[in-house]
Amino acid sequence: MEFLQAQLPRYLDGAWITLQLTFGGAVLAFVLAMVFGIMGTVRSWLLRAITTVYVEVFRGIAALVVMFWFVFAVPDMTGFELEPMFAAILALGLNVGAYGAEVVRAALNAVPRAQVEATVALNLSWFQRMRLVVVPQAWAQMLPTFGNLIIELMKATAVVYMVGILDLTAVAREVRSGTGETLAAFAIAFVIYYLIAQVLIFGMRLLERRANQKLGRTPPSGGGIMSLLRPPSVGTQVGVAK
């Protein structure tokens, strides 16, 4: 208990860094996922080819390797060094964005063809169709997988200690080497990671529920906000690799 009291502020500092990385990475990943996901549905083969290259390259290489590349190889190539925090967010965003792009593409393609035909009958432009009809309807379908991806993103932030960022994992390592208490030092970090994940899961379910209500769907079980606390397991969407 004393140990916890003494060390907790350091852990909270680390957790704050972890949250910043998660948030920054999520924003970047979201933008990339939307842009490349939409590009994956257009008629132009060139745009689709660019999307495929982005998706395959960044799904094929772990965020850790990409981050190392930004931190160690880019300075050699350009003479400029990247801020580690910036390099980390870039690597995480590019990686998760590639998975997200596939999710967005699949969700957009799953919007019924009849809905698109109705937009033609109303003479909406491609941009209006996307903004008003297709993306809002695909949104509800993207969210569950986005929920899994943001958990994966949060977990992936733990690699940043290797480029000297003082995140939660880095704090756990430091506390261990300072106190020799391996079990306690890591247990605190594990619990904080677990709690962050639970908050993220809860938040994503809230978004999901709102999205479904917007489409006029109500959850089958009804139930209040507490029903969000006992969801099916995370991170296990079949067909979506982590």
Binding site: I151, K155, T157, A158, F186, V234, G235
Partner: peptide, 15 residues
């Protein structure tokens, strides 16, 4: 599933 693989690795390795 909700905690990072890397910290699990480091933890077990140290333990």
């Amino acid at each position: 599933r909700t905690t990072p693989l890397i910290i699990q690795l480091v933890f077990v390795f140290f333990l």
